[in-house]
């Protein structure tokens, strides 16, 4: 791909493998200025110096509760929100320095699947038109080719018979089918990076598994990089290679999925994992579960020091004063806690 930015251009983005990651956020902050109750000016700190990278062939899960900034981070990576500080780099080059051709390559290569499929499809457009307009961007022009590609795409996401689905409008499809169309639309660009923001949460349990299956299949087949934003830890456990845990706009821990689940270091990660309900009744019943007290604080009033300290069971005095910097621990994961080993 000659349209990608020169990979040796930026020195600081070079990863161990030699080339900078295809998509990375570096120390990104996002502050939304809003008017609160009775028109008072408030600042919402959605992201606070957050860094993340997505590489080809890996599935990164971004987890956290509401208000943790996971959706904002995925928007920043998609260039749908602009950071107040820090930058997003595509193959090591900041988005705002990309040339037009490079920007087009970025737009083609990075695709998105949103949470609400009904809202992300044009209600007045037949599925055929929806996919055709994307394929035209890729240079597919002739009616014959378009029909062929659309049939291939729809069959690929399990919508059979494809000709019948292509003729329909989004409202004639179920939620699961709509989400499949949304995925087909993302895949139409042959993306190498897919950002999926809660793609399952609007779907029924049995349909969730089908849609997840579809994405994993694509990821494995094309060796694409996936960023899966979710709050469902059971899904993460099943499919993620790497896990990034966010709390109130900051990454508190990230590392290999196996390590995060088996040896979580940050007290918030531990609390989050222990809140994962299990159908294995012999494991634990609700009454024996440790409870994390309190709610996620508002992003308009982030606590001083470590944002987690008011809810943390092991917090010490220092935690309310100093914000902990992320540190790489012995097993290669990164954790932002003063007390982590």
């Amino acid at each position: 791909m000659s349209t990608r930015p020169d990979q040796s251009a930026t020195a600081e983005g070079v990863s161990i493998a030699g080339a900078p990651p295809p998509l990375a956020a570096k120390e990104v902050s996002v502050v939304y200025r809003t008017r609160g109750d009775f028109g008072r000016r408030t600042a919402r700190h959605a992201l606070n110096r957050t860094s993340i990278e997505v590489n080809y062939g890996e599935l990164v899960a971004l987890v956290g509760e509401s208000g943790s900034g996971k959706s904002t981070l995925s928007k920043v990576l998609l260039d749908l929100a602009s950071p107040s500080a820090g930058e997003v780099a595509y193959h090591g080059k900041a988005l705002n320095t990309l040339t037009r051709t490079e920007m087009r390559a970025y737009r083609n290569e990075v695709q998105v699947v949103f949470q609400d499929p009904a809202a992300s499809l044009n209600p007045r457009q037949r599925i055929w038109k929806c996919l055709a307009s994307v394929l035209e961007l890729r240079g597919v022009r002739s009616q014959l080719e378009l029909n062929e590609e659309i049939t291939k795409l729809l069959t690929g996401v399990g919508l059979n018979p494809a000709e019948s689905f292509a003729r329909r409008f989004p409202h004639e499809l179920s939620g699961g089918q709509q989400q499949r169309v949304a995925i087909a639309r993302a895949l139409a660009m042959k993306p190498r990076i897919v950002i999926a923001d809660e793609p399952l949460s609007a779907l029924d349990v049995s349909v969730q598994a089908q849609v997840l299956d579809l994405m994993i299949d694509h990821q494995k087949r094309t060796n694409a990089g996936y960023l899966l934003v979710t709050h469902d830890l059971n899904v993460v456990r099943a499919v993620a290679d790497r896990v990034v845990v966010m709390y109130l706009g900051s990454v508190v821990e990230m590392g290999d999925a196996e390590q995060i689940f088996e040896r979580p270091q940050h007290p918030y990660t531990r609390a989050l994992l222990s809140s994962r309900l299990s159908i294995d009744a012999s494991k634990r019943r609700i009454r024996d579960r440790p409870i994390l007290t309190g709610d996620v604080p508002s992003t308009t009033a982030i606590p001083s020091g470590c944002a987690y300290h008011p809810r943390c069971p092991i917090a010490v005095e220092r935690c309310s004063i100093d914000a902990p910097e992320p540190r790489v621990t012995g097993d290669g994961s990164s954790v932002a806690c003063h007390l982590a080993e």
Partner: peptide
């Protein structure tokens, strides 16, 4: 949210 879900349950 999941942590709050556990509290309420």
């Amino acid at each position: 949210d999941v942590t709050v879900q556990v509290q309420v349950l």
